[in-house]
Amino acid sequence: LCAKRIYMKNWEDFTFIQKAAIGISIVLVAAFAPEIALLVQFGGIEVAFAFLLVAFQPIMTWLNRFYAHIKNTASVAVISLRHSNSAKPSVFALQATFCCLALALTGSGIFAFSFFMPGMLLNGVMA
């Protein structure tokens, strides 16, 4: 059995890009949380970065919930569109025919696309 070793990296073990990312994030947050300077002074960069992670955890939780809500809404919309009668070839062909006919007769794209609305509202009847 091989157990994973969890260890904390020292500041010297980070690459230049990792150090730059941590430094830039601390400088950006210092505008909103001036106590970060005191933490850097007394505790070091590791303590300051740990404080940032703890302080901004509620924002990250909110962003995760917002992302999950958007993802769920988009998946419901895609599923609804797939199972809609408007996605069936016969209904779509009828709606597209009306739209093309209106565009040819009137020359107005807005008027032509307005022919899609009755088809979407009455798609249960047309199926």
Rank of each mutant, 00 (worst) to 15 (best):
C2K: 11
R5G: 02
M8K: 11
M8A: 14
M8C: 13
N10P: 04
F14R: 15
T15D: 08
F16S: 15
I17G: 02
K19W: 05
A20P: 10
A21C: 15
I24Y: 03
S25T: 15
I26K: 08
I26F: 08
V29C: 07
A31C: 06
F32M: 01
A33K: 11
P34L: 03
P34K: 00
A37Q: 06
Q41L: 08
Q41S: 03
Q41H: 04
F42D: 09
G44V: 06
E46A: 06
A48N: 01
F49M: 00
F49L: 00
F49R: 00
A50V: 07
F51D: 12
L52S: 05
L53W: 11
V54I: 08
Q57D: 13
Q57I: 09
I59S: 14
M60K: 07
M60F: 00
T61D: 10
W62D: 01
W62N: 00
N64Q: 13
R65A: 11
Y67A: 02
A68Q: 11
H69S: 13
I70D: 05
I70S: 09
I70H: 04
I70G: 07
N72R: 15
T73G: 13
S75W: 10
A77I: 10
V78L: 08
S80A: 06
R82T: 06
H83P: 00
S84N: 05
A87H: 10
A87Y: 13
V91H: 07
V91R: 02
C99S: 08
C100P: 01
L101C: 14
L101V: 14
L101K: 13
L103T: 03
L103A: 08
T106H: 02
A112E: 00
M117P: 02
M120S: 11
L121H: 04
